[in-house]
Nucleic acid binder design. Structure first.
Length: 147
DNA sequence: CGACTGCTTTGCA
DNA sequence: TGCAAAGCAGTCG
């Protein structure tokens, strides 16, 4: 199966689909413009999401990670559209530490499906993709009408 | 500021 | 393989 790239208003998204399931969804710097999307379905959903018309991406997904990472991702997934939480809150919920939560968030292979952009630091926006992507994070939050 | 945190990754044997 | 050390999208004093 081929990897594909979808253009979104805030950057290109690299998509990997394995056996009919979405395994990875991450920002890419590649300047590839052709859209050879295998599943029109996920493409359409993403477009709608970025227009603000859709609140949930509905697609079979598989995310591989350590048991701890899965716990974190699950906790993050339960954040509702338009809401934010802090790393500390997540940590508390799964009795861990904020630092560890942040690390797990970074390793998240499904960037916006697991809404890690809704997780912010206590007294600032927090990081995103090694601090170079905070702009993206901001715009994602803007789409969801936060701030 | 600095100390501390929990977990992953990296390095080196 | 194994274990120690470093490193994080944080937070508290």
């Amino acid at each position: 199966m081929k990897d594909t790239i979808v253009q979104t208003p805030i950057g290109n998204l690299e998509i990997k689909i394995r056996k009919g399931k979405l395994t990875r969804l991450s920002w890419t710097k590649k300047a590839k413009t052709e859209l050879k999307i295998e599943s029109k379905k996920i493409n359409r959903q993403l477009i709608q999401y970025f227009k603000g018309d859709r609140k949930k991406i509905d697609f079979p997904i598989t995310a591989n990670g350590t048991p701890f990472q899965k716990k974190v991702w699950k906790a993050i997934s339960s954040i509702k559209y338009g809401k934010t939480t802090t790393y500390g809150d997540i940590a508390k919920k799964i009795s861990s530490s904020p630092r560890a939560v942040g690390q797990a968030a970074k390793r998240n292979p499904l960037l916006i499906l697991i809404p890690c952009h809704r997780v912010v630091a206590k007294n600032s926006l927090g990081g995103f993709l090694g601090k170079c992507g905070v702009r993206k994070k901001e715009r994602l939050l803007r789409i969801e009408k936060i701030n």
